[in-house]
Every structure is written in structure tokens, then in C-alpha cells.
Design a protein around this nucleic acid. Sequence first.
DNA 1: CGGCATCCCTTAGGATACTG
DNA 2: CAGTATCCTAAGGGATGCCG
Lengths: 120, 120
Amino acid sequence: MLDRSCIEAIDPLLEILDGKWTLPLLLELFVGTKRFGELRRRLNPISPKTLTDRLRVLEEKGIITRTLYPGVPLHVEYELTERGRNLQPIFAAMWAWVQENGLSPERGTEIVEEINFGLI
Amino acid sequence: MLDRSCIEAIDPLLEILDGKWTLPLLLELFVGTKRFGELRRRLNPISPKTLTDRLRVLEEKGIITRTLYPGVPLHVEYELTERGRNLQPIFAAMWAWVQENGLSPERGTEIVEEINFGLI
DNA sequence: CGGCATCCCTTAGGATACTG
DNA sequence: CAGTATCCTAAGGGATGCCG
């Protein structure tokens, strides 16, 4: 049971995490700093428009930074900010839930390999 | 930094949490068991169609139960399952993030009142 | 390479009326 | 009361082409 007040408290975060690709995108950046093209390949088949949209929103919300390295060809890197990295416990909690509660109600608990989810 | 394997691991949960109203709905049920009409009022202005859709999906995923008490007028109650209640740490982590990281990058840390988020 | 600009389409979700 | 049935809108997202 939760206190009612937390409902509206969480709301601004839901706004940040909204969108089909936002969480997969953040997960990619948790693995490490990435360039536009690499994100696009990893998140295949995301469209460049959608990827740009999401990146801009996350940048605006202070979750990631965009660093431009001038030159030809262009080189742009996206990286999590402190605020962004602080989201880690949320993903850790999600991961833990999946491990402990399985993929579906019918299946039993899955035996999982040792997976390094924590901070490296 | 996270291990890459957790990305696909979390995927099934993202499927469950998907949708504009899913998290607010779950939060309502964390507060306590509720009837259809009460959920509808609390989540105003959700449409009955959407509420039904979301409830059906969550039921199918084993997150909530639907209990029908026969009679006129009808009486139906929705309640979190064990699997559903286990999502609590995720919301707790979200709540903690908002408290510690503020609503926006510009604003300083907000001073918050004592709020009971944990298990009651 | 890293995007915009454009156009298009699917679908989640809204509005409303009606029923067991 | 707790939905279902319809119809409809909006907006997220996809596909493609072009540009600095």
C-alpha cells in the first residue's frame, strides 16, 4: 500500500519516461556514451525522426547531454547526466521484478545466469 | 553503467507498464482495492473504454484480479495480485528519484514534507 | 555523419449512447 | 453499476529525401 500523495509526485517522471522508445534508449545510454548512428543501429528499427525527437526531449529534461565534435564527418555524442544516471535504481528495480516474478503468470520462476546489473 | 543483457530482460515489464494511464492506475490500486466507478472518478478524465482496456490487460498479465459480487446493482472490485504488489519497489525508486532530483534541471531541490511512501 | 523536412499511417485513447 | 458498442480525433511514430 502506498500513500496517495506519491501519485502526483511521480507524475513529472512519467512525463520523462513517456514514449515507446524512451526506456530502451535510456538503457542503451546506461551501457555507455553513444553516437547518433550507433543508437540508431542498436534501437533498430527506430526512425531517425523518432530518435531525434526522443533525444531532444531527454536533453531538455536534463537527462542527457549532447556533445558536438566539429569536423567532417560530424561527430555527436550523447551521454547521461548526473540526473540521468540517478535513474539507475529504477531500472534495477524493474530488472529485479522480472527476475523474481517471471515473464508471465503461468510460467514458473526462470533460472537465470549471473548477470551484472549493478554499477560497473 | 549497466550490463547490456538487462535491456532485453526488462522488455516484458515495459509491455506491462505501457500506456498513458497504466501507471496512474496502478498507483491507485496501490492505495487500495477499488471499484470500477471509483477508479474512473480518481483517474478523471479517463474514458470508460480506456479504463476497461487497461484493466483487462493488467488482469491478463497477472498484475490485478477482478472480483465480481453478483447482485443489482453490480459490484466489481479490482485488486493487486502478489505479482502486482511486487512492483512496489519500482514506484518507490521513481518516487525517490523525484524527491532527490527535483522536477526540472533549473529548479533547486524542493523541500518536501514527510510523506509516507513505504509499506503501511 | 547527423540530422531536418515532409508526408503518411496506425492506433491509443476520447466522446457518447446504450445495456445486462 | 459496470461495462460494451461505435465512431472519431490526435499524435506518436514510420518512410523517404535532402542538406550542412
